[in-house]
């Protein structure tokens, strides 16, 4: 493909989509979270045995205490919006290479019973963007078909 500038010499450009298939391991910790999502429609967070805070996403080690976060507790499925982003900019999803449709709303919701600052991050179904605000009560809606990925959560819905 060429890239001719007015009057200037032709400058060669090569446009391509580079793609490499991946096998992403869940490991035991994220695996447990995703299995609970898929099989039981439960949001399970792991918990640091030392400082007691929850981790979402669940991670092997508590960064504050450098110990394995071995305990598990169910959180939500309701909670309150801690932060949100109304996205107008359309970007590619690097897991599929496809461009996302806009606008959409991302939200970080602190689920009920969460200890520490560990909101769950997902899409918010908000037909009226002007209603979105911090502190708004929301509920996790699970997808009908679930395959053990974050897509098993369809979105948050606003509790009217």
């Amino acid at each position: 493909m060429s890239n001719k500038k007015e009057g200037g010499p032709e400058l060669i450009v090569s446009r391509q989509i580079l793609s490499i298939a991946q096998r992403f391991s869940t490991g035991p910790v994220m695996g447990r979270f995703l299995r609970e999502l898929r099989d039981n429609k439960r949001i399970m967070a792991n918990k640091c045995p030392k400082c007691g805070r929850h981790q979402l996403p669940p991670r092997e080690v508590c960064a504050l205490c450098s110990v394995e976060a071995t305990e598990w507790e169910e959180l939500g499925p309701e909670g309150a919006i801690r932060d949100y982003d109304i996205v107008y900019y359309s970007s590619p999803d690097p897991l599929t290479g496809e461009t996302r449709e806009t606008p959409y709303v991302l939200c970080w919701a602190q689920l009920d019973r969460t200890q520490g600052d560990a909101p769950l991050w997902h899409l918010l179904n908000a037909p009226d963007l002007s209603k979105v605000r911090r502190g708004l009560r929301v509920r996790v809606v699970f997808s009908e078909e679930r395959d053990g990925t974050m897509g098993d959560i369809k979105y948050f819905e606003i509790i009217e």
Binding site: N3, P9, E10, L11, I12, V13, S14, R15, Q16, I17, L18, S19, I20, A21, Q22, R23, F24, S25, T26, G27, P28, V29, G31, R32, L34, R35, E60, V61, E68, A69, T70, P92, P94, L95, T96, G97, G148, T149
Partner: peptide
Amino acid sequence: MSGETEYAYVVEGKMALPYQYFAGAVGSKF
């Protein structure tokens, strides 16, 4: 390692992004 390995599984996915490379003036001439 933390947790029980029976929870682990593999998610098939990909890393895919668009690129455009420029040969530059010297490379283009060639």
